[in-house]
Write a protein that binds this DNA or RNA. Sequence first.
RNA 1: GGAGAAAUGGCAGAGUGGUCGAAUGCGACGGUCUUGAAAACCGUUGUCCGCCUACCGGCGGACCGGGGGUUCGAAUCCCUCUUUCUCCGCCA
Length: 424
Amino acid sequence: MLTLKQIRENPEEVVERLRIKNFDAAGTLASILKLDEERRQLQTSADQKQAELNKRSKEIGALFREKKVDEANRAREEMSRLKEEIKGLHARLHEAEQELEALLVTLPNLPHPSVPPGKGEEDNVEVRRGGSLPELEEDALPHWELGKKYGLIDFETGNKLTGAGFPLFTGLGARLVRALISFFLDEAVAAGYREVLPPLMVNEDSAFATGQLPDKEGQMYKLEADPFYLIPTAEVPVTNIYRNVILDEEQLPVRNTAYTPCFRREAGSYGKDVRGLNRVHQFDKVEIVEIDHPDRSYQTLERMVAHVENLVKKLELPYRIVQLCGGDLSFTSALTYDFEVFAAAQRKWLEVSSVSNFESFQANRLKLRFREKGSKHTRLAHTLNGSALALPRIIAALLENNQSSEGIRIPPALVPYTGFEMIR
RNA sequence: GGAGAAAUGGCAGAGUGGUCGAAUGCGACGGUCUUGAAAACCGUUGUCCGCCUACCGGCGGACCGGGGGUUCGAAUCCCUCUUUCUCCGCCA
């Protein structure tokens, strides 16, 4: 969430920048500023009264030690009124703090100044593209047909086991999944990321800190018996490693990578876009997560983009990178680049990665800070993450683009991992 | 699952109702000394909130696993949750 400092110092700028996200913050901000004022006044008077109580309590202790029992008892009685007052002030203070917090969490992150205005996907700005679009035969099949033809993906049985959107990978299909996971992890480790394997369920504190709660509660699977959520992305556990942590400046950047399955309810999405692997409820993803100094975080973002770009190049997939416009930018993000690969049989661009800088928005909730060299004070760090990469749509594009009468060709970079060059 | 013990600053570890934000040791940082280093000595060494301040900083409040309670006063007493350790049981 935004810090009170950001809001207090530049309310007009906050309102203005949130307009880029098509968010009208004027009313909320006015309430926040009023509550903040109230909160500070309450704290000042509560602190003053508490200071008096503390002082008198020490005096009472001294009286007892001097055996002036009567005097001490009289003083004790006088304290009860003061105690009541403090109690009342604290009650009001907590109320104000909670109201304030409730409002603060409704505000999205400020978009970076470079973010173009726009309503949705159609207003995103293409940054560049690479690779070449394959020429397919007239009878080229979409990946869901190819999955069936070569025994790679069994959607029907996945549906029987769990439900729609839970594909069962079989044979070389399952093997291809495993190969891609290993390939992506090896690439990330080679690029300097530390590999971690986190829990697949997180508690409410973790889900809140990275911004899934309360904003996206309906998009996560929640357990019934315990207050846990199935992770929608490794971003959640991996970023939360650093919840309530103060790093030394020399430790930055902190760079982690994790493979995890991801679980998403995808409530509200239906229709032709959800065919096959285009949109599923459980999928595999390798995520890269970084924590860096605010002065460097945009360079870091570019480096992460370069890493992802390298992956799609090695997989020989035609891709394009788009910068999300204000309307398409997520609640928590300041700047996001999406990677899309072209699935040639569907003739569709499929999003396979989202690389974002959250600046201090998550760090503020995480209480993730660092201490600058030579400084006594702590600062909020910047957090960033990106998919590197999400598997299903990569698989969709690989199958569709590399099909021929011979079978499906595996890109050379992947062959050491699959152990086969063709799916026949 | 049962029984018991414990949780204190970066780490180790004292403190069992009142000058305790917390002894002491280690570590780290600054200084003296030294050609340099080590040793020795001196000093500093948490976070958050509020108020004051041009800045250095000052003052007040909170925090001794989390939450709640008793009390004029809680690291210390009570309740509760969590975690860790030991023993027993069960188990991949």
